[in-house]
Nucleic acid binder design. Structure first.
Length: 253
DNA sequence: ATGGTTGCTTAGCAA
């Protein structure tokens, strides 16, 4: 199983690139975040013509998550508790439980949205503990808006104590790993220094000012099958890229 | 340098 997670920053603006990615990598499962649209503007037809099913939790203007899959998804679950934002969708594909998350950004440390981010991560951990077992074949992937370690930040001094690197969110991320889940990208690239997001505003990509915010976490039985993990950095190049590059993992199951 | 760009929606917000 080849699994991709990608924050597209608007499905409508990124459709051509998404279709090219499907043709290039031929993934079995694609987790998308930041659709920035409700179901009524989701390009179901184009994705079906590309050979994929789509389970979608959309939202007008903001957020929105989807799971694309070659095989038909079952047991589709939408939303995290009473969260009003479209930030979580789960489905079972080819016997693997896929949980796709778009974790709140946090905006500024100390503001109301920061507390919402911390609460959201705590609620995610509790929901996983309640609805899944560490012995399941399970992947939790998406845009976590957390750089787990300074080796996941090209210029750690510039991002110190930011909403993406603060100790509070790093602790909560480690809590997910302690459940336990394995960061399969880290497993294959223990030295870090490979990134998945570059800020549009700082013109960060040409400066090499990246952070690794997009993750594929797997339970031990699934992580043991992971034979490769990559970032498709080229996807950040050229005309109209997303600010995130796709992260992908291969599982030999 | 509290800078800068992109997308949605329509001047302002979110990232």
């Amino acid at each position: 199983m080849k699994l991709v997670t990608w924050n597209v920053n608007s499905i409508r603006s990124r459709l051509e690139r998404l279709l090219a990615l499907l043709a290039r990598h031929k993934p079995d499962v694609v987790c998308l975040q930041e659709l920035k649209g409700a179901e009524d503007v989701f390009p179901f037809d184009a994705i079906q013509q590309a050979g994929y099913h789509a389970a979608v939790l959309g939202q007008k203007t903001y957020n929105g998550v989807a799971i694309l899959s070659r095989a038909e998804p079952t047991d589709i679950h939408k939303g995290l508790g009473d969260d009003e934002h479209a930030r979580l969708i789960a489905a079972t594909v080819d016997g693997v439980r896929i949980v796709n998350v778009y974790v709140p950004n946090g905006r500024e440390v100390g503001c109301e949205h920061w507390d919402y981010k911390l609460d959201w991560l705590k609620t995610l951990a509790a929901w996983l503990a309640k609805t899944a077992k560490a012995t399941d074949l399970l992947a939790v992937c998406g845009d976590f808006n957390v750089a787990p370690d300074d080796s996941d930040v090209a210029h750690p001094d510039e991002w110190a104590d930011s909403v993406l690197c603060h100790d509070r969110v790093r602790e909560l991320f480690r809590g997910l790993l302690d459940w336990p889940l394995v960061d399969v990208f880290r497993k294959h690239h223990p030295d870090g220094r490979i990134y998945s997001w570059w800020d549009y505003r700082r013109l960060a990509f040409p400066k090499g000012d990246g952070l690794r915010l997009d993750h594929i976490l797997a339970t031990d039985p699934l992580a043991r099958c992971c034979s490769a993990a990559e970032v498709d950095r080229d996807e950040r190049k050229g005309e109209k890229p997303s600010d995130h590059a796709p992260v992908m993992a291969t599982f030999d199951i």
